[in-house]
Amino acid sequence: MSNSNATPTTSKPSNNTRNIPHYSDKGQYPDSYYAASRNPKPDRPTLKNDIQVEICVVGGGYSGLSTALHLIETDHEVVVLEGAQIGWGASGRNGGQIVNGLNASLQKIKKSYGQENANFVGQLVTRGGKIIRRFVRDYDISCDLKEKNIFAALNNGQLKDLQETHALWESHGMHDREMLDKNGIQEHIKSDAYVGGVIDHSGGHFHPLNLALGEAAAIEQNGGTIYENTLVVDIEYADDAIKVITEFGTVTCKQAVLCGNAYLNK
């Protein structure tokens, strides 16, 4: 595995600054429980020169961090550029739930695209939780990971829906869910308000910002480089290279992976 950092080609700031409003203002975490209870993090630099690297990942949320960590684990040289701080967006302030489900049901996917594709999507749904657990284990990430979650039914109609969903997921080879009757759910939830439910043994909960910070630390421990408060304003493509242009510097790379979401400034 390579431990070399990206190679600077000049210390002179780039002239590629664009008049694009910064989505995060000063890049500080919004007030939240997660920001208030986050683990310590280093002050990472802003890119202010021109560098060369094999792969540039744009975005320091879950998608960008996971991409970078997987690439580094397979001996690639990686730089991550984040416009604010690691996990500043939804990755650092979501509910922290490992929930295996889809907005579109597997039945709907099967009807539109066939059984094989529905099976493939079903396996993708559960893969994310496995990746999270592997990162937490391999890199000793402190993010308060708790196992399992419950879908609770307040009435028989809701319970029937859960039974149908449970049977559907079972038909796709996913056997981590267990139906609970009224007595069974009371063993987990000390309330008689529910008529039953489903416990998902592959579900869970964690501190979302601390997971992101832990993945960032793992990237750096394995030789990757992360620049924070580094807003990407343009990308130029050539036959032999890609130039990712930030406010004050550039990254020339062989490949670029764009992992932005709500703050793309399109």
Score class of each variant (00 low, 15 high):
Tyr62Asn: 02
Cys56Ala: 12
Ser66Leu: 12
Asn39Lys: 13
Gly61Met: 01
Ala35Tyr: 05
Pro45Met: 13
Tyr33Asn: 07
Tyr33Ala: 07
Tyr29Pro: 04
Gln28Tyr: 10
Ala35Cys: 10
Gln52Pro: 06
Pro40His: 07
His22Gly: 13
Ser32Ala: 06
Thr46Tyr: 08
Val58Met: 08
Gly27Ser: 06
Lys48Asn: 11
Asp50Phe: 07
Leu71Glu: 00
Leu69Phe: 03
Ser32Met: 02
Ser63His: 06
Arg44Gly: 04
Asn39Cys: 09
Asn49Met: 13
Thr46Met: 13
Gly59Asp: 01
Gly27Asp: 02
Asn49Val: 11
Tyr34Gln: 12
Gly64Thr: 02
Pro21Ala: 08
Thr46His: 08
Lys41Trp: 13
Asp25Asn: 15
Asp43Ser: 15
Leu71Phe: 01
Gly60Ala: 03
Gly60Met: 06
Asp31Met: 07
Pro21Ser: 12
Pro30Ala: 09
Cys56Ile: 07
Ile72Gly: 00
Gln28Met: 09
Lys41Gln: 12
Ile51Thr: 09
Gly60Arg: 03
Ala68Gly: 11
Asp43Ala: 15
Gly64Val: 02
Ser24Asn: 09
Leu69Asp: 00
Thr67Gly: 08
Gly61Pro: 00
Val53Met: 03
Ala35Pro: 04
Asn49Gly: 15
Lys41Ile: 11
Gly64Ser: 06
Ile51Met: 12
Leu71Cys: 03
Pro45Gly: 15
Ala35Asn: 08
Thr46Ala: 13
Gly60Ser: 05
Ser63Ile: 08
Ile55Val: 07
